[in-house]
Nucleic acid binder design. Structure first.
Length: 683
DNA sequence: CTTTCTATAAACAGTT
DNA sequence: TAACTGTTTATAGAAA
């Protein structure tokens, strides 16, 4: 395995070196060159950055190990739950006649097969209780942020008024007023601090539960950037404004501690002590403040927020919005309408994906910010994330070689897989694994994804596939074809195909021997792949007609998924509403940065719609019928989504359609974010 | 139960 | 010679 990646870098290294010998400015162009060659590498990294990168890597490794441990725990729990029903997976011959399920053997720490990893990644199994808790936490935090914003605005108005009054009334009554102002100011600041703490805690808990991995780039102090990232930038700026302006006017006469506070807060998301000590309010209710977030201070309408699913007399359950006069009726409503059933479960799943997507987004933006700051302040070039064989996980898999293996594989800038990470499941598994998404036998059959065309799926979930080591739900043949068709010339060498795989899918960054063999095997086996002798050697092309011949076998997603969707497909509309609502009211306001234009969220929605839609079509055509007629989903998509406005080049289309003359080398679609080419060394 | 498709593993030969 | 590329065979699981 290491061997494999070693050889890979070797072959890549040669091309890089060619570039390197050409001049000193290579760094700024090497990326492009390399990419256009279809090479995947990050050798263009400056030697000065190695230390930094290694730090990052170590941090990530720690995070990953943590994650793996949790996943193992989860795995074990699941296995305990389903010991009986286990289909013994593959390679039973290696097992003694006892018929010990292979998975039991895999419970051994540090030993996780790729299949298991993948399965773990895809399962997303949570107990409803956990889901509830997580979602509540999340929503509570968001509510708090909103509250704080509102509160802050009010306070700022008040402040302005008072300042004006002061100016008009002369300086006599200065003291009491100013003290009042200062007190309010402090209260506000303290709330912000508390919120930060809460967010930190929340993030930490997410991390612990495996929903979030530690971001690279903050090897030493993960907390600080995390907290910063969680604060809406607007809010932060406002805060800064007010503190600076206020202190500017005030410090002359008044030596209140607001200055210290503000500076400490702004510069480093302050430790809790300072705020608690300084703030008089904190001293009164400080003991509780950490765990019961500053509700007291928000006095008004606090009841309405005592439950994250209840606000403004409306049930906040995604897609519900039922009006509840008081909290009691809300509780009643909650218990009756949102009890634990398929529907709620499905909604939870959606919500979880929303949250995960948001977290992924957040991680990206933080990374981006980090890169920007790094670029502006330090000279460092933070060469982001050229997809690189991520040996971390695989080395963990290798258990023993892990410790020594990773350090030497230098420029891994691990892109962070944050999306589908399964937290530890615990408690009664009311939801059987089979009722959840993507659970299957360890060796899952990955035929082409039901109905969802490969190119659109890849395009839409590009980030996901790049970062999460999840096996793409397409056959090797489909993937190879996609790789070839994406290339400008519609032809690729074997090595270029390899590189496409590793570039596009984190999953293919390990076990190279296996999948490369499979790729070769597929190329040889399928008539649709034609080998063409070229000047430089041989390239592979696609015989589309042949490929289409082989097409009829395109069905089937995961049966469990479909079953699950089917049971809940009548709720598609609410789900969708929930998704949109979530994005509208929660996420978007938080992302005031460049990520606004980022299609990731929209893509999620689309992908999920497709998922639902595809599954439904499948079930409908399956004859299972059951009055599919008035599914809300069909109202939304009367016809199956062949439309695919996002990507014209589609499977079914003739090859000529696929030609994208404007397609610059095969990675212009990476624009979305991916690998910050921060390499511009302007010195 | 059979067939087909796919994944995986591996042997092997030719080429670089 | 070793690594890469390409072909072929065998086996097994999944799905139709």
């Amino acid at each position: 395995m290491m061997q494999e990646s070693g050889t890979e870098t070797k072959s890549n290294g040669s091309t890089i070196q060619n570039g390197a010998s050409s001049g000193n400015h290579l760094i700024e162009c090497s990326l492009r060159e390399v990419r256009s060659n279809g090479e995947t590498t990050s050798v263009e990294i400056g030697a000065a950055d190695l230390a930094h990168l290694q730090q990052q890597q170590q941090a990530l490794q720690v995070a990953r190990q943590l994650l793996l441990q949790q996943q193992q725990q989860q795995q074990q729990q699941q296995q305990q739950q389903q010991v009986s029903g286990l289909k013994s997976p593959k390679r039973n011959d290696k097992q003694p006649a006892l018929q010990v399920p292979v998975s039991v053997a895999m419970m051994t720490p540090q030993v996780i097969t790729p299949q298991q990893m993948q399965q773990i990644l895809q399962q997303q199994v949570l107990t409803p209780q956990q889901l509830q808790v997580l979602l509540q936490q999340q929503q509570a935090l968001m509510l708090q942020q909103q509250q704080l914003q509102e509160f802050y605005k009010k306070q700022q108005e008040q402040l302005q008024l008072q300042l004006l009054q002061q100016q008009h009334a002369g300086k006599q009554p200065k003291e009491p007023q100013q003290q009042q102002v200062a007190t309010q100011q402090l209260a506000f600041q303290q709330q912000l601090l508390q919120m930060q703490q809460l967010q930190q805690q929340h993030l930490l808990s997410l991390q612990r539960q495996g929903l979030l991995t530690i971001q690279p780039g903050q090897p030493t102090l993960p907390l600080q950037p995390l907290a910063q990232g969680m604060i809406p930038t607007e809010l932060q700026q406002l805060w800064k404004e007010v503190t600076s302006s206020h202190t500017a006017e005030e410090t002359a006469s008044n030596n209140h501690s607001s200055l210290d506070l503000s500076t400490t807060c702004v510069s480093s998301s302050a430790p809790s002590k300072t705020s608690l000590i300084i703030n008089p309010h904190a001293s009164t209710n400080g003991q509780l403040s950490v765990h019961t977030p500053k509700r007291e201070s928000l006095s008004h309408e606090e009841h309405s927020h005592s439950h994250p699913l209840y606000g403004h007399g409306v049930c906040k359950w995604p897609g519900c919005e039922a009006v509840c006069e008081d909290f009691q009726s809300f509780l009643k409503h909650l218990n009756s309408e949102h009890a634990l059933d398929d529907r709620s479960t499905a909604q939870c799943r959606v919500q979880m994906q929303v949250v995960q997507q948001l977290e992924l987004q957040l991680a990206k933006d933080k990374e981006r910010l980090q890169a920007m700051m790094t670029h502006l302040h330090v000279k460092s070039t933070e060469p982001k994330a050229t997809p690189q064989p991520l040996n971390l996980v695989s080395s963990v898999t290798l258990s023993k070689t892990a410790s020594e293996a990773s350090p030497q594989s230098l420029p891994h800038t691990p892109t962070t897989p944050t999306t589908p990470i399964t937290p530890v499941t615990q408690g009664p598994s009311v939801i059987t694994p089979t009722s959840m998404h993507n659970v299957g036998p360890i060796r899952r059959r990955y035929s082409d994804k039901y109905n969802v065309p490969i190119s659109s799926d890849i395009a839409q979930n590009q980030e996901f596939y790049k970062n999460a080591e999840v096996r793409p739900p397409f056959t090797y043949a489909s993937l190879i074809r996609q790789a070839i068709l994406e290339s400008p010339e519609k032809q690729l060498t074997l090595n270029e195909i390899y590189n496409w795989f590793t570039r596009m899918f984190a999953y293919f960054r390990r076990n190279a021997a296996t999948w490369k063999n499979a790729v070769r095997h597929n190329l040889s086996l399928h008539k649709c792949f034609v080998r063409v002798e070229n000047v430089k050697g041989a390239v592979w092309t696609v015989d589309e007609a042949e490929f289409q011949k082989r097409r009829p076998q395109k069905i089937s997603g995961n049966p469990s998924l479909i079953k699950n969707i089917q049971t809940s497909h009548t709720y598609c509309s609410p789900l969708n509403a929930a998704l949109q609502a979530s994005m509208a009211e929660n996420s978007i306001p938080l992302y005031t940065t460049a990520s606004m234009g980022n299609p990731a969220l929209g893509n999620l929605a689309i992908a999920m719609k497709e998922e639902l839609n595809g599954a439904m079509e499948h079930t409908n055509s399956n004859g299972s019928d059951s009055s599919p007629g008035r599914s809300p989903m069909q109202a939304m998509h009367p016809v199956h989504v062949k439309e695919e406005p996002l990507d014209p080049d589609e499977n079914e289309g003739p090859l000529s359609l696929v030609t994208t003359a404007n397609h610059s080398p095969d990675f212009d679609h990476d624009r979305d974010y991916e690998d910050e080419p921060v390499n511009e060394d302007i010195e």
